[in-house]
Simulated scan of single mutants.
Amino acid sequence: MLNQDNSSTLLHDLDKIDRRILQVMQADAKLNTKEIAHRVGLSITPTYERIKKIEKMGLIKSQVTLLDRQKVGKTLIAFCSVSLQLHSLAHIKNFEAAIAKLHEVMECYHVAGNYDYLLKVVVNDMNKYQQFLTYKLATIENIAQVHSSFVMTETKHTTAFQLDEV
Rank of each mutant, 00 (worst) to 15 (best):
L2H: 15
L2A: 12
N6F: 13
N6L: 11
S7P: 01
T9M: 07
L11E: 08
H12E: 09
D15G: 12
K16Q: 13
D18V: 14
R20V: 06
L22Q: 02
Q23E: 15
V24K: 01
M25Q: 09
M25G: 05
Q26N: 10
I36P: 00
I36C: 03
R39N: 10
V40I: 05
G41N: 10
G41F: 07
S43R: 13
S43E: 12
I44R: 14
T45D: 08
Y48M: 12
Y48P: 01
K52E: 06
I54N: 02
K56L: 08
G58L: 05
G58S: 04
T65A: 11
L66W: 07
Q70A: 12
V72H: 02
V72P: 02
G73P: 03
K74D: 04
K74V: 04
I77S: 04
C80W: 01
C80D: 14
V82G: 00
S83G: 03
L84K: 00
Q85Y: 11
L86Y: 06
H87Q: 12
H87G: 09
S88A: 07
L89T: 06
H91V: 12
I92M: 09
N94Y: 09
A98S: 13
K101A: 06
K101N: 06
L102I: 10
H103A: 13
E104V: 04
V105S: 03
C108I: 08
H110C: 05
V111M: 12
D116W: 00
L119D: 01
K120S: 02
V123P: 00
M126K: 15
M126V: 12
K128T: 15
K128H: 15
Q130A: 13
Y135E: 10
L137M: 02
N142P: 03
A144W: 06
H147C: 02
S149E: 12
V151W: 00
K156T: 11
T158D: 09
A160Y: 06
F161L: 05
